[in-house]
Design a protein around this nucleic acid. Structure first.
Length: 546
RNA sequence: GUCCCGAUCGUCUAGUCUGGUCUAGGACACGGCCCUUUCAAGGCCGGAACACGGGUUCGAAUCCCGUUCGGGAUACCA
């Protein structure tokens, strides 16, 4: 058993007998390099961020490329912020993107294929259900002096931080020299609330990153960070190290914001005798203005629009009521006065619609609602920080590809080091091209599926044939599915009553006024007039594509 | 503040490791023209970048150092 090479670490000695033995058994025990296992480990505290999809996509592609397995693990160790519903949403969004996981929570994708499962028997994929494993490691560490209980109050910690700040130093928590270890253990055993900290030895930690190269972190980086919180749950740093080891994760792809966390993880791995996985830190993705792409952006956009329109709290409240998301004037006022407050996503959507602004898309769900195709999102995302470095026959770069291409060509050495800005215009162009390349039938089907989720009204207003007609007319000139209704082109008539059709004066001048004037002696002003002027029946208007 | 990372057209990037083939290529966007009864789409053409300063070298976008700028981390969040 202990011949399992890389896996014969600490946990074989009893951290988690069950998962340890089973992991080792199914791992290729004779091989020095175990089968590739990558993972995506979201924390279920909100929707799936578009940047997260790229991390997942790359992790997925790397596993596919190397015949390995892609795991999804739910990091729900923040009891206050984690929720079941956001976990479900994340699984759904990931599956919608076509990024399917070989191991992880069970799920059925949109076409009825089961995703997930636990083929290697590594145990639960929810960290909240792995507490026993963490506790066993903690007990050992406490026993061997690798960890110790700590009783500081938040106020004490704040004071220490302030002190360090005053000295213009980075705050690093280290165990007090004169502390009595036995006394501390006794206090903990007596039930006094405490955290457990890592007795982190001062040492230089060299992190080898496949993207950034060798990064040296001096001893000033070590601190006795918390392993287990007072509520008994593990911290991220601890859970991630234990899980990556016990679940046989070989390659960790994650955002560059984690680079500074890596020496902590490596220090823990060394102390515990764990293997260090291969790390690849992905460059960050920002908004076009260089700011962080965050959920707050939506709130910010609405806030600015309200301010720009000089809307009173009463007016906003009325709008919200109209939108079916009633909120009291007092609440609106509180929101207006406090920039840290945020409106709910339904409220923001309702206001955006009434204010005629487009909310910035941040989460997968936003892009989906806007009518971007999942395969296009994956294509565009893959190009952010990675590129295949291949040329087409005409000398242009290979830029348009599907997920299969990514999984066949993905490699860590083609990941860039520089952060990128998310360009929705280019995404839109890719989406338009993809739509233009579809058949009318396929597009109509896609649009119906989209309506099924986001626009039931549309489905009720149009029977199958009329919908087909509408889609055929809209397809060549539309960037997203949500634009079908607004840019229906020649059959735009069909969507509003004749009298409501308002024409762009320049277009009327250029194409319609002169011919109609010759007939009627004056310019037409409404759709109804035009129809009369031309003497045609609406039903006879056929969609055409130029 | 301290530590860490980064720097090629407006944006995403190729080229950098292995210096010359780079008067720096592609894509999106932009401008012009063509096509066109509208809007799109398509075709052709165009403007547009190696952050700055020092080295090393016959030769630097490419290697080294510094400066500047940008970003990240500095939690009982992940």
């Amino acid at each position: 058993m202990s011949a399992a090479g890389e896996h014969s670490g600490h946990y074989d000695r009893g951290v988690s007998k069950e998962s340890a033995t089973s992991t080792s058994r199914s791992a290729p025990a004779t091989s020095a390099s175990p089968r590739v296992v990558t993972r995506f480990a979201p924390s279920p505290t909100g929707h799936l961020h578009i940047g997260g999809v790229r991390t997942a996509l790359f992790s997925w592609a790397y596993a596919r490329r190397h015949g390995g397995s892609f795991m999804l693990r739910v990091e729900d160790t923040d009891q206050a912020r984690s929720s079941e519903s956001s976990m479900r949403g994340i699984l759904e969004d990931l599956a919608w993107c076509g990024v399917d996981w070989d191991e992880g929570p069970g799920f059925v994708d949109p076409i009825g294929r089961p995703i997930g499962g636990d083929p290697r028997n590594v145990g639960s994929f929810f960290q909240s259900q792995r507490l026993e494993i963490y506790d066993r490691v903690i007990a050992e560490m406490l026993e061997s002096g690798l960890a110790y209980p700590s009783f500081d109050t938040p106020e004490q910690l704040a004071a220490l931080r302030k002190e360090a700040d005053g000295k213009k130093e980075a705050f690093r928590y280290k165990r007090g020299a004169g502390e009595d270890p036995k006394g501390a253990m006794d206090r903990m055993r007596s039930g006094e609330p405490c955290v457990v900290r890592f007795a982190n030895p001062d040492r230089v930690v060299n992190v080898t990153d496949e993207v950034l190269g060798e990064v040296r972190f001096g001893p000033e980086h070590t601190d006795d960070f918390v392993l287990r919180k007072a509520d008994g749950f593990p911290t991220y740093h601890f859970a991630v190290v234990v899980d990556d080891q016990t679940m046989g994760v070989t390659h960790v792809l994650r955002g560059q914001e984690h680079l500074n966390n890596t020496p902590r993880h490596v220090a823990l791995q060394i102390a515990l005798g764990y293997r260090t996985p291969v790390y690849a830190h992905l460059p960050l993705i920002f908004n076009m203005d260089g700011s962080k792409m965050s959920k707050r952006d939506k709130d910010k956009a609405v806030r600015e629009a309200c301010k720009g329109a000089a809307l009173s709290a009463e007016a906003v409240s009325a709008m919200l009521e109209e939108a079916g998301t009633a909120t009291t004037v007092a609440d609106v006022r509180r929101w207006q006065d406090d920039k840290t407050r945020q409106l709910g996503s339904d409220q923001l959507r309702g206001l955006a619609q009434r204010l005629q602004i487009v909310l910035p898309e941040i989460d997968v769900e936003d892009f989906r609602r806007a009518g971007y195709l999942p395969e296009v999102i994956c294509n565009y995302l893959a190009l952010l920080g990675w590129n295949p470095g291949q040329k087409n026959a005409d000398g242009t770069d290979v830029e348009k590809f599907d997920r299969a291409f990514v999984s066949a060509n993905f490699s860590l050495d083609r990941i860039g080091k520089t952060s990128s800005k998310f360009d929705r215009v280019k995404l839109g162009s890719f989406n338009q091209t993809a739509i233009a390349a579809m058949s009318d039938a396929e597009f109509a089907e896609r649009f119906r599926d989209w309506c099924d989720v986001f626009d039931q009204m549309m489905l009720q207003r149009f029977d199958h044939d009329r919908m087909t007609l509408l889609c055929a007319a809209a397809r060549p000139r539309v960037k997203t599915l949500s634009e079908v209704a607004s840019k229906a082109g020649p059959v735009g008539f069909a969507l509003v009553s004749d009298d409501e059709v308002v024409y762009d004066p320049a277009a009327v001048e250029k194409a319609l006024r002169k011919p109609v004037e010759m007939e009627a002696g004056r310019p037409p002003t409404t759709g109804a007039e035009l129809v009369r002027a031309f003497g045609v029946e609406l039903a006879s208007v056929e969609p055409f594509s130029a």
